[in-house]
Simulated scan of single mutants.
Amino acid sequence: MDLFSRSWTALRTAVADIPDEDFERPSGCTGWLVRDLVCHLVIDAQDVLITLVTPAETEPTVDAVTYWDVAETPPTGEDPLDALIPRLAAAYGEPRLLKFHLDDVGSAAGRAAELADHAARVSTRGEVLTVGDYLSAYVLEWTLHHLDLIAHLPSAPEPPTETLAAARASLEKIAGTPFPASFSDKDALLIGTGRRTPTDAEKAALRDFTAKLPLILG
């Protein structure tokens, strides 16, 4: 819960501090501007709220690691929902309205997470998992999207050190293989998910792990 709160608070704070003109810069998500990514975060926050009030009585079918599907190809932005996001973001008109909506819904999602019983089971995406596992999975989500948010904003603050480490650990569990110790947590996440191409030296350090990359999470 502490890592969920830290990662989500850091991400929302980073959004709040972005100058309006930077909302038109590209993000680290293919085909999305910063404003589009922020709009996606609003929907993510809504998903958290919905999931936390969708109880399940059956046994868990996934945990924080198996919650993630690994796709064979990266998103192109042409998926119907992905393509809808830029239109929704543009409809806000002004960055301050997007910031307000994210702060409003995002704060509610954060409070709901704090109040939730972490041993309780919830249902989402046709699966059942504990609240604790669901929130743990979102530490990876928030951290990756924080990196996406600041991909072309060099002066923006990075995710907290402890959430970068936790996200790396989660990605290594998904991959079933640890990243080289020489990789920083940030580089492991960027290279591991295809957000950055590894250098020749990094490819050499990865060795056979390279064949598993990138890990496209969905």
Rank of each mutant, 00 (worst) to 15 (best):
L88Y: 09
Y67D: 00
A91R: 14
H101C: 01
D63E: 06
S123L: 08
A151Y: 01
I43E: 14
P178I: 00
P180C: 07
T163L: 05
D148I: 07
A169G: 08
A71C: 10
A156T: 04
L144P: 04
P86A: 10
H145V: 04
P60H: 13
P154D: 04
V53Y: 14
T163M: 09
L49D: 06
A108K: 08
Q46M: 13
A108R: 15
I150Q: 02
Y92G: 07
S155T: 14
V62N: 05
V131P: 02
I150M: 04
A156W: 00
E59H: 09
D44L: 05
S155A: 14
I150A: 03
A56L: 06
E114P: 01
V48F: 00
P180D: 10
R125W: 11
V70R: 12
I150V: 15
R168L: 15
D117P: 11
L147R: 05
A167K: 04
D104Y: 09
A116C: 09
V122W: 01
G132M: 00
A119C: 03
V70C: 07
S136F: 09
D117V: 08
R96K: 15
A116K: 04
D82V: 04
V128R: 04
L97V: 14
L102Q: 08
G77Y: 08
L129D: 11
V65I: 15
L88E: 09
V48H: 03
Q46C: 05
L52S: 03
D104I: 01
A109M: 03
E94W: 11
L153C: 04
A64F: 10
D79R: 15
P178V: 01
E114W: 00
L147W: 00
A137T: 12
E141D: 12
H145F: 04
I85Y: 11
L135Q: 11
A166K: 14
R121D: 13
L49Y: 02
I50K: 12
F100L: 13
D103M: 12
L49V: 06
T130A: 01
D117L: 08
L144S: 01
L49P: 06
E172C: 07
H152T: 14
A71L: 14
L102P: 04
V122I: 15
L135Y: 07
T51W: 01
E78C: 02
A181N: 12
L144M: 13
P180E: 10
P55M: 00
A137R: 06
A119Q: 13
L149W: 11
